[in-house]
């Protein structure tokens, strides 16, 4: 009996270790994880795999013992006898205290090593300011002065984000990079990584930031060094293809960017919808037809005046069914007069 028990334990241990090893090394987790597009992602996914292997073993031990006990130790009808008066077993209890302690020590040390690896300061990183505000992300490249609402990064070049917020707490999350960091008002936080895959990946806000939280998304475009440089040289106006298609073909200097480009640059589509510019926000009023209905909102203001006022002083008149204070109130300090003129005449023609 005793020998049989030892034999069973050894066999089961070998089987479980094999299963854990296979989960950690062989199982395809691509259905469980997004694209792997940064230096962090590779290391984090490896750690995740190892933890899945360990988790599988623990899961099988506990659920297996549970199911076995349920099937095997069912009370027979009419059997009113008591079970065995076993109060404990010191050896067993020490084993099942120590083994989990060793396991979490291993996971802890491994996690710490991955942490120091992914957060090691790179030399000569590209600095990008990440600015969260209700309900859009914007990105600034201090070296070139370029500003954009879509994040562009060169592949295989380390980048250092400087993350901040203009209002409440947001959280800058790029699932394909396997990292997020809060944008906290009053402080600038640093985050380093190296993009490793060319492609377009979603950027999301992970911290509840108000009514438009779900819509606070944009994209990161990881490009070849050349494409990235061309984008920087263009002043950051070579934006998404949808916008380029809708653009009016003016030259590429930032000051005279086309209205659809400005709509993207200032993140209007995070909240507003406008079919002509492919904006699909759901938080604020739809802008379709604003050139018509904008004229009968405020006594004595034609559509142009109304639109201009609504951009620079959004609380002056708030559309029925929407809350004041949701739209950022600092556009007057961020939009040049020229850009404002372009936007107003474009919107008034809708």
């Amino acid at each position: 009996m005793k020998e049989r028990t030892i034999f069973t334990v050894i066999i089961l241990s070998l089987v479980l270790i094999t299963v854990g090893y296979l989960v950690a090394t062989q199982v395809d987790f691509s259905w469980l994880l997004p694209a792997q597009a940064s230096s962090r992602a590779v290391l984090v996914d490896r750690l995740f795999r190892v933890m899945m292997g360990i988790a599988a073993v623990i899961f099988l031990i506990v659920e297996g013992a549970l199911v076995y006990a349920v099937l095997r130790f069912r009370r027979k009808p009419g059997d009113d006898r008591e079970g065995l008066p076993v109060h404990g077993n010191n050896t067993l209890e020490i084993v099942w205290t120590l083994i989990p302690a060793v396991i979490v020590a291993v996971i802890g040390i491994y996690s710490y090593r991955v942490l120091t690896d992914v957060e090691r300061k790179p030399s000569d990183p590209l600095v990008v300011r990440v600015i969260g505000q209700q309900f859009a992300w914007s990105f600034e490249y201090p070296d070139s002065g370029v500003k954009s609402s879509v994040l562009h990064l060169p592949v295989d070049h380390p980048v250092q984000f400087q993350i901040e917020s203009r209002d409440v707490i947001h959280s800058f999350w790029v699932p394909a990079f396997r990292v997020k960091h809060d944008a906290t008002p009053g402080q600038i936080d640093e985050l380093v990584l190296t993009p490793t895959e060319i492609g377009t990946f979603p950027v999301r806000c992970a911290e509840l930031c108000g009514v438009g939280h779900a819509a606070m998304t944009t994209e990161v475009k990881v490009e070849s060094q050349e494409d990235f440089q061309a984008w920087i040289d263009s002043g950051g106006t070579l934006v998404s293809s949808a916008t380029t298609a809708a653009g009016s073909g003016t030259d590429n200097s930032a000051a005279t960017a086309s209205a659809p480009e400005l709509l993207v640059q200032f993140g209007c589509g995070a909240c507003h919808s406008l079919s002509a510019a492919s904006l699909a926000g759901i938080v604020g009023p739809a802008l379709d037809g604003i050139g018509t209905w904008g004229a009968d909102r405020v006594e004595g203001q034609d559509a142009q005046t109304y639109i201009r006022n609504s951009i620079v002083e959004p609380n002056a008149y708030v559309e029925k069914g929407y809350a004041p204070g949701v739209m950022p109130q600092d556009f007057s300090t961020r939009i040049s007069q020229e850009q404002l003129d372009v936007l107003v005449s474009y919107l008034a023609s809708q």
Binding site: M51, G108, S111, Y112, R178, K180
Partner: peptide, 14 residues
Amino acid sequence: IFLASIPVDLHVHD
């Protein structure tokens, strides 16, 4: 445990 591990948490947190 996954959430306690900082590098994994930075992906799955929130």
